[in-house]
């Protein structure tokens, strides 16, 4: 189990998207449909690089990588030592 997912969830659900009840927002639910936009993604990448000490390569920044919390966690995990 990843320790980064809860921190990602807290940040995204509180600062980047709008949902009435964050507790029931699943890890498979679509973040882009929930309002994560390009500026939100820029914030998210900043946050991830700083909090988890990774560098996310330019060419990997794609809708599929930030589609939901599972995808996002896998992506960031793959860049951790």
């Amino acid at each position: 189990m990843s320790d980064i997912r809860p921190r990602l969830r807290a940040f995204v659900l509180e600062e980047l998207i709008y949902c009435e009840n964050p507790d029931v927002f699943s890890n498979e639910q679509d973040l882009l449909e929930a309002g994560l936009d390009s500026l939100g993604i820029m914030r998210l990448i900043m946050f991830a690089e700083r909090e988890f000490g990774v560098t996310l390569p330019d060419t990997e920044i794609e809708p599929e990588m930030v589609r939901n919390f599972n995808a996002l966690t896998r992506w960031i995990e793959s860049h951790r030592q």
Binding site: L13, E14, Y18, C19, E20, N21, P22, G35, D37
Partner: peptide
């Protein structure tokens, strides 16, 4: 606060 944010999202652009 999430409920208030949800309320606002029904009324204001992102």
């Amino acid at each position: 606060p999430a409920r208030i944010r949800g309320w606002l999202a029904q009324r204001l652009p992102a």
